[in-house]
Structure formats: structure tokens, C-alpha cells
């Protein structure tokens, strides 16, 4: 088990290094630089700025410098902020994005699972059509439209919740719903199809024939097996949702890092682009690792941990 863990961690670090290197090469390959704007910033001032941010040095030097800082867990300075370094920007923004993401994820998992199971049980009947109809709406309506609609109804017309910004739990309700609905719909459809598949399996028929109660068969047997594909997608899904959404953060004025990472690309904020890649990949690698562990817990046939020599 220890060998397996060490191998996994080393492999993850290698993946991270490849991602950083690729991001570094790609971001310097796109034309335009952080100071190229319509503003008439004098050539002298530009030169001073490049020197101030260390962009006047050759790329290999910048690359080595970045990596050596990264090993010391120093993500460097953003061009976006004179007053906070990137560690601070992430420390400020990531908890906010993660909290919102967690709420949305919870909504998506609970809602998606319930809808999916209900749809599968009432296959081709009204309940099925209703829940799948809802799921299709959730997938097809873009989050920015949903967000605007939610603001208009619940904040402007009904005055129940604040329009935007961040502060109390009331501020999180609308963005969490707007963020969670699409994954909810996706998970509902996924649960439905894998649930349908399990319900048609012989072991389910056998269990019912043996006189086990229907709820017990559904929850204890079929659902448990139907969860497996859901756990597979939950890894990447949570990494994505926890690192924030550009659109939702933009519309609701939420001080998360989703917005910051996306804007870093159009701003050519090189250190921040790299940090975005590092944070996102690290989360993704961690989430995938957890998924692998979760497989073993849910389905004893997949003995990842125990099976490794």
C-alpha cells in the first residue's frame, strides 16, 4: 500500500511538472504582453515595468526562477495586484470559491441523485418525464441566463435575497443554485441511466424474487452499484466547481478565484496563469486520487489499495 501511495504521489508530481512546463511554453507563445494596451505607456515606462516584474530576463531564466520559487511554495507576484502576492490572492479567494462550490456540489449530488433514482423507478411514466425534463432544462439553460433570471425574480422582484456581492449566507443562495443546476442535471441523467441498467440486472430480480423489500433492494443493492459511474465523474467535477466559475463570480460579483484565473489569461498575467494551472491541477490530481480510493470503498471488487503489491 505504501509503495502504491508513493508511486501515485511521484506520478502526480511528474504530471504537475509537465503541466507547468506546457503552460509556461504555451502562455509565452500567445501574442501580446501584459503591458500591450491602447494606453500610450511610454517605451521608457514599459522597459521599467518589464524590469520591475522580471520579464526582461530570458525565458529559461524566468522558468527556472519560477520552478525554484514554486518548490518553496512561493507562487510569486501577480501583475494584477501590487499589494498582495499570489499566495495571498489564492488564500483570500480560494475559500470563497470553494465554499460556494461545495454548496453547489451538495445541491447537485443530492438533487441529481434523487431525481435520477425517481426517474429510473418511474421509468417512462410522468415522474420520469418530469425529472428528465427538468434535467434537460438544467443542461440547456446557460448559467448566465439562469443567474440573471434568478437575480431578477428573487432579488429585484421579490426582494427576498441580495442582488450580489459577498458577505452572509443569504448572498450564497442564488449563486449556488445557478452554479449547481447544470451538474445537478448531468448527475440526474447519469444516475437514471446507470440505475436503469442495474435494475434490469439478474441479481436485482433474484433479490426481489427472494422476497426482499423493494426499497431495500433499490437502496442497498442497485443504488450502490449505480453510484460507481457517479463517483468517477465527481472527481473532475469537484475540482472544476471548487476552483470557481468565471461566469457566476462575474455576474454575482463574488470575490473568488475563478474570475481571477480566467482574467489572468486575457491580462497575460504570466505568474497568475501558472498559479491557476498549478492550483487546478493539484486539486484535480487530488480529487482523482480520492475517487480511486472511493471505488474500493463502494465496490469491494475493485481492490485498488489492497490489490497493489
Amino acid at each position: 500500500m505504501a509503495v502504491y501511495l508513493i508511486r501515485r504521489v511521484l506520478l502526480s508530481l511528474l504530471t504537475l511538472w509537465v503541466i507547468i512546463t506546457l503552460t509556461f511554453v504555451l502562455m509565452h507563445a500567445i501574442p501580446g504582453d501584459p503591458f500591450a494596451s491602447e494606453a500610450r505607456i511610454s517605451p521608457q515606462a514599459l522597459e521599467n515595468l518589464r524590469r520591475f516584474y522580471g520579464l526582461d530576463q530570458p525565458l529559461p531564466v524566468q522558468y527556472v526562477k519560477y520552478l525554484s520559487n514554486l518548490i518553496r511554495l512561493d507562487l510569486g507576484r501577480s501583475l494584477r495586484s501590487e499589494v498582495r502576492d499570489i499566495n495571498q490572492i489564492i488564500a483570500d479567494g480560494l475559500p470563497i470559491s470553494a465554499l460556494l462550490g461545495a454548496e453547489a456540489l451538495l445541491l447537485a449530488v443530492l438533487g441529481g441523485m434523487t431525481l435520477g433514482v425517481l426517474a429510473a423507478l418511474g421509468h417512462n411514466r410522468l415522474l420520469d418525464h418530469l425529472s428528465i425534463g427538468l434535467a434537460i432544462i438544467g443542461i440547456s439553460v446557460p448559467s448566465f441566463i439562469l443567474a440573471t433570471l434568478l437575480i431578477n425574480v428573487f432579488a429585484v422582484q421579490l426582494g427576498l435575497l441580495p442582488v450580489s456581492t459577498w458577505g452572509t449566507w443569504r448572498h450564497t443562495v442564488l449563486p449556488a443554485v445557478a452554479l449547481g443546476l447544470a451538474p445537478l442535471a448531468y448527475l440526474a441523467r447519469l444516475t437514471r441511466s446507470s440505475m436503469l441498467e442495474e435494475l434490469s440486472q439478474d441479481y436485482v430480480k433474484a433479490a426481489i424474487a427472494r422476497g426482499l423489500s423493494r426499497p431495500r433492494v433499490i437502496v442497498g443493492h442497485a443504488l450502490r452499484n449505480a453510484l460507481l459511474p457517479m463517483v468517477t465523474v465527481l472527481g473532475p467535477l469537484s475540482a472544476g466547481i471548487l476552483t470557481g466559475s468565471f461566469i457566476i463570480e462575474n455576474i454575482f460579483g463574488i470575490p473568488g478565484i475563478g474570475k481571477i484565473f480566467v482574467l489572468s489569461i486575457s491580462d497575460r498575467d504570466y505568474p497568475l496563469i501558472l498559479s491557476g494551472a498549478v492550483v487546478y491541477s493539484a486539486l484535480l490530481l487530488a480529487a482523482n486520487f480520492l475517487v480511486d480510493v472511493a471505488y474500493g470503498v463502494i465496490d469491494p471488487r475493485i481492490r485498488v489499495l489492497g490489490g497493489a503489491r
Binding site: 432579488a155 426582494g159 455576474i251 454575482f252
Partner: peptide
């Protein structure tokens, strides 16, 4: 000063007196 990037949202905030 609040920091809301979306002008549509800021417009709604004006309408609700924020």
C-alpha cells in the same frame, strides 16, 4: 465602493437601492 464586474448586475443593484 463595491466590486461587481457585471454591468447588468450593477444596474439591478441600482434599482434595488444598493
Amino acid at each position: 465602493f463595491t466590486m461587481v464586474p457585471s454591468r447588468a448586475t450593477a444596474y439591478q443593484m441600482l434599482q434595488t437601492g444598493q
